[in-house]
Design a protein around this nucleic acid. Structure first.
Lengths: 152, 152
DNA sequence: TGCGATTTAATCGCATACGATTTATATGGG
DNA sequence: CCCATATAAATCGTATGCGATTAAATCGCA
C-alpha cells in the first residue's frame, strides 16, 4: 500500500528509529559505566562534567553548560554535589558577581589518574577506527538536531 | 609524551568520547521532538512507549520493558499516565494475576495517523542511506554495551 | 499437599533534565 | 544618576531512570 519510506512509514518499527537507537544506547552507556563510577561515588552525569573540566578549567556555569548542552537548572545541583564531594570549587567572579566560576580541585584532577581516563572502547565491541568514525557521525547528528530545533 | 591512543588518553577531550556524543545526541533528540509532541501532551519517553506498542500490542510490562530497555520501576508510572490520558489500557492477566497486559486504545492507535509516525529524518541532516546505517551501528553499539555490562 | 523460592509489578528514594520563574547583578539610555 | 532592560545563576515543579525493597501470585518439589 505504501513504499518503505523511512521519512514516514505507515507502521514504523521501533528498531528502525534512530532516535530510539540513541536513546537506548545512552541508557546502555550509563549501565556500562556504573560499576566503574560507583566505586568513586560518581554518577554518569557527574563524570561527564568532570571530563569537561579536565579539558578546560575555571569555566562559568553557562560556559560549562554550553559544552555539556545543559543549563544552570540542571547543572547547579550537580556542581553543588561535586563541590561537596571535594572534586571542584564554585566561586563568584569578583569582576561580575552574576557569574560563578567552576574549577577542579586537586582531588578532581587526580580522578584522571585513577583509571577514570578511559572511554570504554573495548566494551563497545568496535575497532578503533569505527569507534572514532561513529563518534564523529553521532556528534554531527547531534549538531544537526540542535540546529533544527533552534530553527523551529 | 603519550601517543593519541583512544583506549586511554592522558588528557582525554570530551569531544572524543563516544559516550558523550550519544549522551548529547539523546538530549538533542528530546529537544527536536518536543515541539511536535507537546501538541499532543506526550513526553519523549511516552512517545517511544507508544511506538513500541504500535509494533506489538497486549504486552506485559516486562515484555514491553525488554523492548524499551526499561524495568517496571520506570515503566509503571509512565504507563499509568498514558492510561489516564486515554492512549492505553492496563489489565491484570486472568491467567496469571502477577502480570499486567498493556494494550493501545483506539486513541492510541490513531496517534499513528496524526503526523506522529515520523522519524525526524530531515532534522538529522543525513541522507537516508546514512541514516539507516547509523541506526544499525548505534543499535549494535548498544547491544555490545549491554552484553559487556551483563558480563561484568 | 504444603511451603519456601521465584516471578511480576509496584513502591520508594535519589539523581538527572527541563520549562518557568525568581533573585542578584550589571548595563545603558535619558 | 536612575531606572528599565538584560544577563547569570539558582529555585521550583514535573517527568524520567534506576537501585532497593515490597506485595502478590505462582511454581516446584519434598
Amino acid at each position: 500500500m505504501n513504499p518503505p519510506d523511512p521519512t514516514g512509514p505507515v507502521n514504523p518499527k521501533l528498531a528502525d528509529f534512530l532516535c530510539f537507537a540513541v536513546y537506548s544506547a545512552n541508557l546502555a552507556y550509563g549501565r556500562a559505566y556504573k560499576p566503574i563510577l560507583e566505586k568513586l561515588g560518581l554518577t554518569y552525569t557527574q563524570y561527564i562534567a568532570i571530563v569537561a573540566l579536565w579539558e578546560e578549567d575555571n569555566l562559568t556555569v553557562s560556559a560549562l553548560g554550553a559544552k555539556l548542552f545543559l543549563e544552570s537548572n540542571t547543572l547547579t545541583p550537580i556542581l553543588k554535589k561535586l563541590e561537596t564531594a571535594g572534586y571542584l570549587t564554585r566561586r563568584r567572579n569578583p569582576e561580575d558577581e552574576r557569574q560563578v566560576r567552576v574549577s577542579l580541585t586537586e582531588a578532581g584532577r587526580r580522578l584522571r589518574e585513577k583509571g577514570l581516563n578511559m572511554t570504554l572502547v573495548k566494551q563497545t565491541g568496535l575497532p578503533v577506527e569505527e569507534f572514532s568514525r561513529l563518534q564523529r557521525e553521532v556528534s554531527i547528528l547531534r549538531d544537526n538536531l540542535i540546529k533544527a530545533a533552534d530553527g523551529a
